[in-house]
Amino acid sequence: TGEEYIAVGDSTAQQVGDLTFKKGEILLVIEKKPDGWWIAKDAKGNEGLVPRTYLEPYS
């Protein structure tokens, strides 16, 4: 379980453990880390770190 967020920009994984996503994708945020990198899952079930500045709450 988690909260749904929509990507407001494209982000390409810079290192192992990062999640690549495109603008408009809905991501499920699993954990919000205080350093600004959140753990999220995409629609295909891929999981990784995403920069919170690229996400907005999805409603």
Rank of each mutant, 00 (worst) to 15 (best):
Y54A: 14
P34G: 10
T1G: 12
E3T: 09
V50Q: 00
A7T: 11
I6Q: 06
G24P: 01
I39D: 00
Y54E: 08
D18F: 15
V16A: 12
D10S: 09
V16H: 11
P57M: 06
G45V: 01
P34I: 09
S59K: 12
E3N: 08
D35F: 05
L55I: 08
G45T: 01
F21T: 01
K23R: 11
T53A: 14
L49R: 15
Q15G: 14
A7E: 01
R52T: 07
T53E: 15
A13Y: 09
G9S: 15
I6N: 02
K41A: 06
S11W: 15
D35H: 06
K41L: 10
G36E: 04
G24M: 03
Y54R: 09
F21L: 04
T12I: 13
P51A: 11
E31V: 12
P57E: 07
G24R: 02
V29E: 00
A13E: 09
G48P: 00
P57G: 04
A40C: 15
T20W: 08
L55A: 01
K44N: 13
E47N: 05
T53F: 11
D18A: 15
G2L: 11
E56C: 14
L27Y: 03
G9D: 12
L28S: 05
S59H: 12
P51Q: 14
Y58K: 08
E47W: 12
G24A: 03
E4T: 14
I26H: 05
V8N: 09
G17P: 05
V8Y: 04
G24V: 01
V50C: 04
E25H: 06
G36M: 05
T53Q: 14
A13G: 13
E47H: 09
F21N: 00
E31A: 11
K44I: 08
P57R: 09
L27Q: 00
A43M: 11
G2N: 08
E25T: 07
G24H: 04
G9M: 15
P57W: 06
V8Q: 06
K44M: 12
E25D: 15
V16D: 12
I39G: 02
T20H: 09
G24K: 02
L28H: 07
I39P: 00
A13D: 10
G17Q: 06
K41N: 03
D18M: 15
A43F: 09
T20R: 09
D10M: 04
E3G: 07
Q14M: 13
G48V: 04
E47I: 15
E56L: 12
W37M: 13
D10P: 06
N46K: 07
G45Q: 03
K33N: 11
E3K: 08
P57C: 06
E56P: 00
D35W: 04
I26K: 06
F21S: 00
G36Y: 04
E31W: 11
D42G: 04
L49T: 10
P51R: 13
L19A: 01
G45C: 05
K32N: 02
T12G: 09
G9C: 15
L28K: 07
E4A: 14
N46M: 07
Q15H: 13
E3W: 14
E47Q: 13
K33T: 08
N46S: 06
V16P: 14
R52C: 15
Q14E: 12
Y58F: 11
T12Q: 12
L28Y: 13
G24T: 02
G2E: 08
G48F: 05
K32Q: 06
E31C: 13
D18T: 15
T20C: 10
W37K: 09
D42Q: 02
L27M: 05
D18Q: 15
G36A: 04
E4M: 15
E31Y: 13
Q15S: 12
E3D: 09
L19V: 03
S59Q: 12
K41D: 01
P51I: 08
G36Q: 04
K32A: 04
Y5F: 08
P51V: 07
V50L: 04
Y5Q: 01
S59W: 11
G36H: 04
G48M: 03
E47P: 04
Y54T: 07
Q14G: 11
T53S: 14
K44Y: 14
E3H: 08
K23L: 06
G36I: 03
Y54F: 13
T53L: 10
D35C: 09
